[in-house]
Design a protein around this nucleic acid. Structure first.
Lengths: 270, 270
DNA sequence: GCGGAACATTAACCTATGTTATGGCCCCCG
DNA sequence: CGGGGGCCATAACATAGGTTAATGTTCCGC
């Protein structure tokens, strides 16, 4: 897929992500760089956003891991998704009154924050970026929907296997995994909250996977020994990640538009 | 909230929904009406979209109920969300290769379909509409995330109660519920698939709710006798529906933009 | 008005997963 | 170098919810 230029100028994770949907122009690139100008660091276990708070700034995760999670009044908690570099936090902050979820770091992170008005500017001035953002939002929703399928209809073993394959895939795309192994800064407690299971049962289930030789774990290092087998166990169908697509589909949509517009309008039977 | 003009011209559910985010101009209204020009009917239990199929047209549900659902190869199924009038189906069809979910009608419906290029046109020519669409997409994702919390961390009783309150709220906004009662064209099987439970257990749970006098059911008519109590049982916190917001927040965002642009740019410390 | 399909209801029984409890390991801090 | 906190591991036991199966009910086509 996309190869990460070794940390150089436009190689921010957000830039990388969006440019896998459209080829970015110089102007668009400049706009994105400007967005990420104001960089800050946060330690692990810091809340970047707290459920119920008024929304403030929006930000881009540039480095590190975080989780998006929701809690019930009595403390039960559900991890909605893992936030990886290139993901945006609170993108619609100016449209929603309060945050309905929290975002908490799992590792030390680097975030770039910007005033939400920038998003409005983006919608006005950069329709292709806007569409790319909408695209990535839709993909994110697809991931949440897939997790919903897991919690609703997969067994514990299937869920764990599915999550591991999903993370492996997502991390591979951003060069954070090499041949089946990656760093997983996730305690079993957090995994439990992501999978709707108890800690103990996550532990049991992980053990089964280890015993059957499908994965190996040492500390935060996780190695998948047999991806295809693990994918079978987890009933993993990567449709939902929408990784397979004709390159530059959005690109083409935008240029086709000129050509097709006349046709469409002339079909009008008024 | 928004009162539905009695079926007259701009009163399409989509128009209504979007105009609760921004006050729509004449041009924008015209564009939306044109979108919904090509109307068709479908019976109950018809697939409007099938998981794995190549995406084709996009469409707007104008009347009736449908469900968005995903299935595992072995037939287990999860309902992701209920599709109500004003919701768009397959909005990003030109960006994704294949559908990762199905959409099936629960009642006879009226849908308007349009070529996906129209969405591109919309992003180019109507940034405010684009933002409104993004907004409603984000709200939809928020609903899926809340359902995820249900499946992961709420008990069966809580889930059922929560779902009923959610539907009541959503239907009230579009004038499809009056003082606590509404028509629910949903079998217990579908409810089970939405809540990650078995049919039998949905039945048991519904009975508990009836026995405790919180709801009444007769045929497809569902009456909530005590909303606030039911909301307590379901740990319902309507934050996620994002109904409470300053009116025309998006509106304001768009006009503020002009004013703030200068300030933001001048902050630039280059 | 009869037969059958689709759906709701209930009971009896079973199992996947949750709970509670205990011990071990590792690492950091004093 | 000793102690405590966070995390992992396992065992024993408890239960929410799943499964199977049998019976009703409603409605629709003929």
């Amino acid at each position: 897929m996309v190869r990460a230029p070794a940390g150089k100028a436009p190689g921010s994770p957000l830039w990388l992500k969006l440019s896998s949907y459209v080829t970015l122009t110089r102007d668009e690139t400049a706009f994105l760089l400007e967005l990420e100008r104001c960089v800050a660091r946060q330690p692990a276990r810091a809340d970047l956003l707290r459920q119920g708070d008024r929304y403030g700034e929006a930000s881009v995760l540039r480095d590190g891991w975080a989780i998006r999670h929701k809690a019930l009044p009595d403390g039960r908690r559900q991890v909605v998704n893992f936030v990886l570099p290139g993901d945006i936090i609170g993108i619609y902050s100016n449209l929603f009154e309060c945050a309905d979820h929290s975002v908490t770091t799992l590792t030390p992170v680097e975030v770039a924050s910007f005033p939400p008005e920038r998003i409005v500017a983006l919608f006005r001035g950069f329709p292709r970026l806007a569409a790319a953002l909408a695209w990535s939002g839709a993909r994110e929703e697809a991931m949440v929907a897939e997790r919903l399928l897991s919690l609703g209809r997969r067994t514990a073993l299937e869920r764990v296997a599915h999550l591991i394959v999903e993370l492996l895939r997502r991390l591979s795309v951003v060069n954070m995994a090499q041949d089946g192994h990656f760093t997983l800064p996730v305690t079993q407690e957090i995994m439990a909250d992501a999978l709707g299971l108890s800690i103990v049962h996550v532990n049991r289930t992980l053990r089964r996977l280890r015993d059957s030789g499908l994965v190996e774990v040492s500390g935060q290092r996780l190695t998948v020994k047999d991806v295809s087998q693990l994918a079978v166990v987890g009933q993993f169908d990567e449709l939902y990640l929408h990784l397979i697509r004709a390159p530059d589909q959005l690109e083409r949509a935008f240029s086709d538009h000129q050509a097709k517009r006349r046709t469409i309008l002339s079909t009008d039977p008024t």
